[in-house]
Design a protein around this nucleic acid. Structure first.
Length: 1051
RNA sequence: GCCCCCGUAGCCCAACCGGCAGAGGCAGGCCCCUUAAAAGGGUCCCAGUGUGGGUUCGAAUCCCACCGGGGGCACCA
C-alpha cells in the first residue's frame, strides 16, 4: 500500500514544458514562461525559468517550525499532526480508507467527503510541518538570500474581526480567492507572502465582557482560535509564523510607537511633508519662525512654548465639537456616524458636543491623499468615494465688512465670478460672529417675513437657534424648506459697495467652509429658494443659455451686470471671470483664492476599555507628555468593570467617562521623564479600532522584530517602489482584497499613517496598497412565513406548481423568498464547517470560485455544491482506481486531439488565474477532464496529460491535487511548482473553419488551411456553392475577411 | 435630486480589441448502472443578450434615451 502501481517516473512525453521548479522539470527548449501563451500577465510579470529554487518547500521540515514557538497558529492541532506524522513519511501518499460509512464497500477509494476529509487533514498537517508556505525575508530571523527572487508578490486580505459567531460561507470568499492566486503564483516561481491576522480590538468583546464579566482578552483569544481552526480546514496557504492580532501586546506596543511618531511630528506646509517636532522647536528657538503673538521665543513661559508646539502636532488635543454618542458612552469619528446622525454601531443618536479629545491632523494630507489616488490601481468607485469624502474644491475666500464690527464676515465660494449677484448673506446658526453683528433693534423698514415675529434681532436669533438645535439631522434632510431669520445687520458687498442683509439659516453648515456664505440666488438653487421665500432681490450675473426657463442657472455663460468703476467681468466666461475677480480681490486685500476640503481632522480617542492605551501622561500643568520609547508598551490594566458609562440615548448633555479612568492605581503614576521624578496621570482614553488596521500589513513583514516595527530592508523588499512599473509607482502591497465597505474609513486612515511614516523616513513606499480589489459578496435567500417570521432556509422546499410557477414551502406552509445577507437572524447561515463535512474543503473552495468572477456578488446555493464535488470525483476516477486506491494512468502517447485540448486549457488557465477569473479557469479544467473521461475513461489517462491536469487544479483544490500528485509518484509538494506551460504548436489548428456571412448573416462555412492568406480565403469564400447561389451572378460590393474569424460578403 | 456599476437560457455565469451568442455548473427530460438509492455513468432540451433608437459590412460589446436592480453621496456654498 505504500506506493502506487505505476512507476514513480516522470512523464515520458517530451512536449510538455514546465515552468517553475519541481520534480518533473524537463526542458526541451528554453522555458518561455506563462507569457509565451499570449496571456496578459502584466500584473505578474515573470520569467520563471530563472527562478531560484526554493529549498524549504521540497526538502525537510523547516527547523524553525514544527512545534516550537514559531507555530502559534494552529497550535491546538499539532497533536493531530503527530498522529499522522507526515513529516517523516513521504511515501504514505496512498489514501487510507476513511471510515465514513458512506462509501460503497466495493469502492473504498471513491472520492467523497470522508476520503476528502482524510486527505485534507493529512496535507494540512504536512504543509504546517514542512513550512510549505513560509516566505523568506531578505534579512532578520527568516533571512533566506537564496529564496529571495526578483519576483515577489505580497498578497493581502483585509483581516477579519474575530466575532463570536464564527465564519459563514460568505466570509472566506476573498481569502480563498487570494489563496488561489498565491498558489498559482508560487507554482509559477514567484516568491509569495500571504498571511492572515486579526483585527481584534473592538466593541463586541467588550460588550460581552460587560454582560458576563469575561475578560475581553479571553473572549478574543477564544474567537481567534476558532477562526484559525475554521480557516485552517480550508487549506489556505498562509505563512502562519506571520500571523498577528492587533490585541497582542507585542503588536500594540508598535501601534503606540507609531502614535508617538505621529505625535512627535508636524506638517511643514512649505515642504509639504511631516517633519520631527524637534525641528519645529529648533526653528522657534532660533527665531527663524515667529511665534503666534510675535513675542520672542524666550519671552514665552515653558507652558506657553509647549502650547505653541503642541498646536502643530499631527496628533493633538482639541476642544471642539465632536460626535458624542451617549447610548454608546463614547465619541465617534465623522466616518462612524451615519448620514441621519446615528452611530454606525448600535444605531444610537449622535450629538454634536464640544469636548476635549485627541485628533489626528489628516487634513494636512488632504491634497496628497487626493492627488496620489491617480497613482493607485484601485477600482474607480473606491477612488471616487475617497475623492468625494475628501471633497477638495477650489474657490475664493472673500471678506464682507460689517459696519460697526471689527471682524469682517469671511465666506468661501467656488463662484467668485458671481459676486455682483450676491444680494444677501447667511451665517450658520452656530457662527461665532452672529452675536457680535446682531444690533439692538430692527431697522425701521424691516420686512415682516424676516423677523420671525420677534421683537428684537437678538430674540429672533435666539429663538431660531433653539429651533435649529432641536431639529434632528433627519428632519433637516426630510424637510428642506428654507428657514432663517434676519440678524438685523447689513454687510457690504466688496465689489459694488451695496449693503446686503445678513441672515442666520440652518442650510448653511458650520462644519464646511467658513460657516458663512454669500448668497447668489440667480446662480444657486438653494439661495434662489431662500430668496423667494424671504422676498430678497435676484440679480442674474451669468447670461443663461438660449431657451433657459429654470430658476437658478448654474451653467457656463457670459457674465452680465458685473462691473464697477475698476473692473468689468461682463462678457467673460465663468472660468475667466473667476480668475479676474479673484485677482482684483487679492490686489485690494478683499480676498484670495483658497482650496477647501470637506475632510475634517480625525477624532482619535474613544471612551472604551478594549483598545490601545495612549502612550501619554498628563503633568501637573495639565499638559500632555509623550512617554519615551523605553516605556512601551503601555499595557491595559486589569479592571473590574469594563463598561464605559453609558447614558440614555437621548441624554445629550452627559459627559464621557472612560472605563480606564476608574483604574486609579494605573492612572496615577510617578515617573522620571527627564525632569526628575514627578507625578503624572495617564491618558484614560483608548485608540479607535482603526488604529491597528492602519499598519498591520507592515507587521506581517517582520512580526518577530523586537527592535523596530519593521526592518527597513524587509519593508523595501516587500513594499518598495518598483521602477519597472514607472516613475509614479508609489510601492505598497501588490494586491489587497476586501469588501468595498472600507472604501473611506480603513483605506483612508491607513494611507494617512503610511504617508506620515514615509515622510519621516520610516518606510520607503508612499502608499500602503498599490492595487486594490473589491470582492463581491455571497448573498443568500431567506424565507418568511405568513406572519413575517423567518423560516430555517435549510428546511424550505421548492416546488413547481402545475402552471409552472415556482413556490416555496416550509412545513407545508407557503413562505416568501427574500434575497440578501446571510445572518443568524435571517436563519439562513451556512458555515464552511458544514460544507467541509458534507463535501470537503476542496469541493467548497472550487464551488465558491466557480460560481462567478471574484468581484461579482451572487447567491449561495447549497444545492449546487454537488456539481463541484462531481467534477473532483470524475477527475479522481479518471486517475485513481476506486477499488485499490492506486493510480491508473498509462504511459501511452496522448492523441493529438487530447494534446490540443490540454494545451488550450493550459494557455487558458494561465490567463484566467492571473486575472482572478477562477470561474473560467475551473470551467476549462472541467472541459479538459470531460474530454479525458470520454477518450480515456475506460483505459486510463496518459500520464503526460494527467500530470498537468493535476497541477492546474492545485491552486483551486490543493489537497486533492497534492494527493493525486503523490499518487502519480512524486515525493515533494507541488506547492512551488512545476506548472505546465502551453506549447504553441497545439494552440494553432491546421485548418480553420470560416463562417461566411452574406450581408451580416451566416449563410455557409468553408474550411481552409490555417496559414491561408486573405486572398485565398476570399477566393474560397466567393467560390463556395451557397455563396455563388446567393450572389446570383452579381458582383459583391465589398468582401471583408477577418483573419481567423469570418468572411462577410456585402451585396 | 446627483454620481457610479450591472441587466445574456428557469438559476449562477462564458463570449479576447465590435466578428459564428455558449465554456462550465445547477435545475429539468430520457436512457444506463444498481436489490435499492444517489453525491454514479451517458445523453438531450432551452435564450438571441431589459426596451427603443443610432453608428457599422457586422453590435451582447460603441453612442443616445428609457425601464429594472444594486451601490455611493446628499442643503459641501
Amino acid at each position: 500500500m505504500a506506493t502506487s502501481a505505476t512507476p514513480a517516473s516522470t512523464s515520458s512525453e517530451p512536449r510538455i514544458r514546465w515552468s517553475g521548479s519541481g520534480t518533473a522539470t524537463r526542458v526541451g527548449e528554453p522555458d518561455r514562461g506563462p507569457t509565451a501563451t499570449g496571456a496578459t500577465l502584466d500584473r505578474w510579470p515573470t520569467d520563471s525559468s530563472s527562478r531560484p529554487r526554493r529549498t524549504s518547500s521540497t526538502g525537510a521540515a523547516d527547523p524553525s517550525c514544527p512545534s516550537g514557538r514559531g507555530v502559534f497558529w494552529f497550535s491546538g492541532r499539532l497533536e493531530t499532526s503527530q498522529e499522522w506524522d507526515m513529516s517523516t513519511d513521504t511515501t504514505a501518499a496512498v489514501p487510507r480508507r476513511a471510515d465514513g460509512g458512506a462509501d460503497d464497500a466495493a469502492l473504498p477509494y471513491r472520492y467523497g467527503a470522508p476520503l476528502a476529509a482524510e486527505i485534507e487533514r493529512r496535507w494540512q498537517d504536512r504543509w504546517a510541518a514542512e513550512g510549505t508556505f513560509h516566505a523568506p525575508n531578505p534579512s532578520g530571523p527568516w533571512a533566506d538570500p537564496a529564496g529571495i527572487g526578483g519576483d515577489k508578490v505580497y498578497l493581502l486580505d483585509m483581516f477579519p474581526y474575530p466575532s463570536g459567531s464564527g465564519l459563514h460561507v460568505g466570509h472566506p470568499l476573498g481569502f480563498i480567492g487570494t489563496d488561489v492566486l498565491g498558489r498559482y503564483l508560487r507554482m509559477t516561481g514567484h516568491t509569495v507572502l500571504h498571511a492572515m491576522g486579526f483585527d481584534a480590538f473592538g466593541l463586541p468583546a467588550e460588550q460581552y465582557a460587560v454582560q458576563t464579566g469575561t475578560h475581553p482578552r479571553t473572549t478574543t483569544e477564544d474567537n481567534i482560535r476558532r477562526y484559525k481552526a475554521q480557516l485552517r480546514q480550508l487549506g489556505l496557504g498562509h505563512d502562519e509564523r506571520r500571523s498577528v492580532a492587533t490585541t497582542d501586546v507585542e503588536f500594540y506596543r508598535w501601534t503606540q510607537w507609531i502614535f508617538l511618531q505621529i505625535y512627535n511630528s508636524w506638517y511643514d506646509e512649505a515642504q509639504q511633508k511631516a517633519r520631527p517636532i524637534a525641528e519645529l522647536e529648533a526653528e522657534y528657538a532660533a527665531g527663524t519662525r515667529p511665534t503666534p503673538d510675535e513675542r520672542s521665543w524666550g519671552e514665552l513661559t515653558s507652558v506657553e512654548q509647549r502650547g505653541v508646539v503642541d498646536s502643530h502636532r499631527l496628533a493633538y488635543i482639541s476642544e471642539a465639537p465632536v460626535n458624542w454618542c451617549p447610548g454608546l458612552g463614547t465619541v465617534l469619528a465623522n466616518e462612524e456616524v451615519t448620514a441621519d446622525g446615528r452611530s454606525e454601531r448600535g444605531n444610537f443618536p449622535v450629538f454634536r458636543r464640544s469636548l476635549k479629545q485627541w485628533m489626528m491632523r489628516i487634513t494636512a494630507y488632504a491634497d496628497r491623499l487626493v492627488a496620489d489616488l491617480d497613482r493607485l490601481d484601485w477600482p474607480d468607485s473606491v477612488k471616487a468615494m475617497q475623492r468625494n469624502w475628501i471633497g477638495r474644491s477650489e474657490g475664493a475666500q472673500v471678506r464682507f465688512p460689517v459696519a460697526g464690527v471689527g471682524t469682517p464676515i469671511e465666506v468661501f465660494t467656488t463662484r467668485p465670478d458671481t459676486l455682483f449677484g450676491a444680494t444677501y448673506m447667511v451665517l450658520a446658526p452656530e457662527h461665532p460672529l452672529v452675536d457680535a453683528i446682531t444690533p439692538e433693534a430692527w431697522p425701521s423698514d424691516v420686512d415682516a417675513r424676516w423677523t420671525g415675529g420677534a421683537a428684537t434681532p437678538a430674540e429672533a436669533v435666539a429663538a431660531y437657534r433653539d429651533a435649529a438645535a432641536r431639529k434632528s439631522e433627519l428632519d433637516r434632510q426630510e424637510n428642506r424648506e428654507k428657514t432663517g431669520v434676519f440678524t438685523g445687520a447689513y454687510a457690504t458687498n466688496p465689489v459694488n459697495g451695496q449693503p446686503i442683509p445678513v441672515f442666520v439659516a440652518d442650510y448653511v453648515l458650520m462644519g464646511y467652509g467658513t460657516g458663512a456664505i454669500m448668497a447668489v440666488p440667480a446662480q444657486d438653487q438653494r439661495d434662489w429658494d431662500f430668496a423667494t421665500a424671504f422676498g430678497l432681490p435676484i440679480v442674474r450675473t451669468v447670461q443663461p443659455s438660449e431657451g433657459w426657463d429654470g430658476e437658478a442657472y448654474t451653467g457656463d455663460g457670459p457674465a452680465i451686470n458685473s462691473a464697477n468703476d475698476e473692473i468689468s467681468l461682463d462678457g467673460l466666461g465663468v472660468g475667466e471671470a473667476k480668475r479676474a475677480i479673484t485677482d482684483w480681490l487679492s490686489a485690494r486685500g478683499g480676498g484670495e483664492s483658497v482650496v477647501q476640503y470637506k475632510l475634517r481632522d480625525w477624532l482619535f480617542s474613544r471612551q472604551r476599555y478594549w483598545g490601545e492605551p495612549f502612550p501619554i501622561v498628563w503633568d501637573a500643568d495639565g499638559m500632555p507628555v509623550a512617554l519615551p520609547d523605553d516605556q512601551l508598551p503601555v499595557e491595559l490594566p486589569e479592571i473590574d468593570d469594563y463598561s464605559p458609562k453609558t447614558y440614555a440615548p437621548e441624554a445629550a448633555d452627559t459627559e464621557p467617562e472612560p472605563p480606564l479612568s476608574r483604574a486609579s492605581e494605573w492612572v496615577e503614576v510617578d515617573l522620571d521623564l527627564g525632569a526628575g521624578p514627578q507625578h503624572y496621570r495617564r491618558e484614560t482614553n483608548t485608540m479607535p479600532q482603526w488604529a491597528g488596521s492602519c499598519w498591520y500589513y507592515l507587521r506581517y513583514l517582520d512580526p518577530e522584530n523586537e527592535e523596530r516595527f519593521v526592518d527597513p530592508e524587509v519593508e523595501q523588499y516587500w513594499l518598495g517602489k518598483d521602477p519597472a512599473r514607472g516613475p509614479a509607482d508609489p510601492g505598497g502591497v501588490d494586491l489587497y482584497v476586501g469588501g468595498v465597505e472600507h472604501a473611506v474609513l480603513h483605506l483612508l486612515y491607513a494611507r494617512f499613517w503610511h504617508k506620515v511614516l514615509y515622510d519621516l523616513g520610516q518606510v520607503s513606499s508612499e502608499e500602503p496598497f498599490r492595487r486594490l480589489f473589491n470582492q463581491g459578496y455571497i448573498q443568500a435567500f431567506a424565507y418568511t412565513d405568513a406572519r413575517g417570521a423567518y423560516a430555517p432556509a435549510e428546511e424550505v422546499v421548492e416546488s413547481t406548481a402545475p402552471d409552472g410557477t415556482v413556490g416555496f414551502t416550509w412545513n407545508g406552509q407557503p413562505v416568501r423568498r427574500e434575497y440578501g445577507k446571510m445572518g443568524k437572524s435571517l436563519r439562513n447561515v451556512v458555515t464552511p464547517d458544514e460544507m467541509c463535512e458534507r463535501y470537503g474543503a476542496d469541493t467548497f473552495r472550487l464551488y465558491e470560485m466557480s460560481t462567478g468572477p471574484m468581484d461579482v456578488s451572487r447567491p449561495w446555493s447549497t444545492r449546487d455544491v454537488v456539481g463541484s464535488q462531481r467534477f473532483l470525483q470524475r477527475v479522481w476516477r479518471n486517475l485513481v482506481d476506486e477499488r485499490t486506491g492506486e493510480a491508473r494512468v498509462t504511459d501511452a502517447e496522448p492523441d493529438v486531439e487530447t494534446l490540443r485540448a490540454l494545451h488550450r486549457a493550459i494557455a487558458g488557465v494561465h490567463t484566467d488565474f492571473a486575472a482572478l477569473h477562477y470561474n473560467t479557469a475551473a470551467a476549462k479544467l472541467i472541459e479538459l477532464n470531460n474530454h479525458l473521461t470520454k477518450t480515456y475513461g475506460s483505459t486510463g489517462v496518459p500520464r503526460s496529460v494527467a500530470e498537468p491536469l493535476v497541477l492546474m487544479m492545485a491552486p483551486l483544490t490543493p489537497h486533492v491535487a497534492e494527493e493525486l500528485w503523490a499518487l502519480l509518484g512524486h515525493e515533494g509538494s507541488l506547492a512551488h511548482g512545476p506548472f505546465p506551460v502551453a506549447d504553441e504548436q497545439y494552440l494553432v489548428a491546421e485548418t480553420v473553419e470560416y463562417p461566411i456571412q452574406v450581408n451580416g448573416k451566416v449563410r455557409s462555412r468553408i474550411v481552409v488551411p490555417a496559414d491561408a492568406g486573405i486572398a485565398t480565403v476570399e477566393a474560397a469564400a466567393l467560390a463556395e456553392e451557397k455563396v455563388v447561389g446567393l450572389l446570383d451572378g452579381r458582383e459583391p460590393r465589398k468582401v471583408i475577411v477577418v483573419p481567423g474569424r469570418l468572411v462577410n460578403v456585402v451585396v
